[in-house]
Simulated assay, not measured.
Amino acid sequence: MPHVVIVSYTGSEEDAAPFVRDHVAYLERHHADGVFLVSGPTVPSSQGGAILAHGVDRETIDRISAEDPFVENGVATHTITTIEPGRVHPALAAPLTAAPVSQN
């Protein structure tokens, strides 16, 4: 099932700045393992960002979210909404219905 993860700064972007490099590595790791389909800043970016994840259950996405360096260092929180797709654009059907990603 897909999950929408909203990343909200608990303070300012400047508070998060020391952790950006580790946060980007976290994003790259989960894009590479196939869990994150899309990630990026919100508009305006001062609010945080968003992630579209898939292929893992809710327990796993909760664990992955807790590992975000922004969350670990208290400069952001994650709000997760899990979606049960009723209708899917054909261009997204394959990635959203792919077999679950193995997360050891």
Rank of each mutant, 00 (worst) to 15 (best):
M1A: 11
P2F: 00
H3L: 01
V4D: 02
I6V: 14
I6K: 14
S8Y: 00
Y9N: 06
Y9K: 05
Y9V: 09
T10F: 00
G11D: 07
E13M: 13
E13W: 00
E14N: 13
E14C: 00
E14T: 12
D15N: 12
A17N: 14
A17F: 14
V20T: 10
R21P: 13
D22L: 04
D22Q: 13
H23P: 09
V24I: 13
V24Q: 09
A25Q: 10
A25I: 07
Y26P: 02
L27Q: 15
L27Y: 06
E28P: 13
R29Q: 14
R29D: 10
H30L: 05
H31V: 04
D33W: 00
D33E: 12
G34D: 06
F36T: 02
L37H: 06
L37P: 05
V38N: 03
V38M: 01
V38H: 02
P41D: 07
P41W: 00
T42F: 08
T42P: 04
T42A: 08
S45W: 13
Q47A: 15
G48Y: 07
A50P: 13
I51D: 15
I51F: 15
L52S: 14
L52E: 07
A53Y: 06
A53L: 07
H54S: 15
V56Q: 06
V56M: 04
D57F: 05
D57Q: 02
E59L: 11
I61N: 05
I61T: 03
I61D: 01
D62N: 06
D62M: 03
A66H: 07
E67P: 13
V71Y: 05
E72R: 11
E72P: 05
N73K: 03
V75S: 00
A76R: 01
T77P: 04
T77G: 08
T77M: 01
H78C: 04
T79R: 15
I80V: 14
I80H: 09
T81C: 13
T81Y: 14
T81H: 14
T82F: 04
T82A: 06
T82N: 03
T82D: 02
E84W: 00
G86F: 02
G86I: 00
R87H: 13
V88F: 02
V88E: 01
H89Y: 11
L92K: 10
A93N: 12
A93V: 10
A94V: 14
P95T: 01
L96R: 05
L96N: 10
P100K: 00
P100E: 01
P100S: 01
S102M: 06
Q103R: 09
N104P: 15
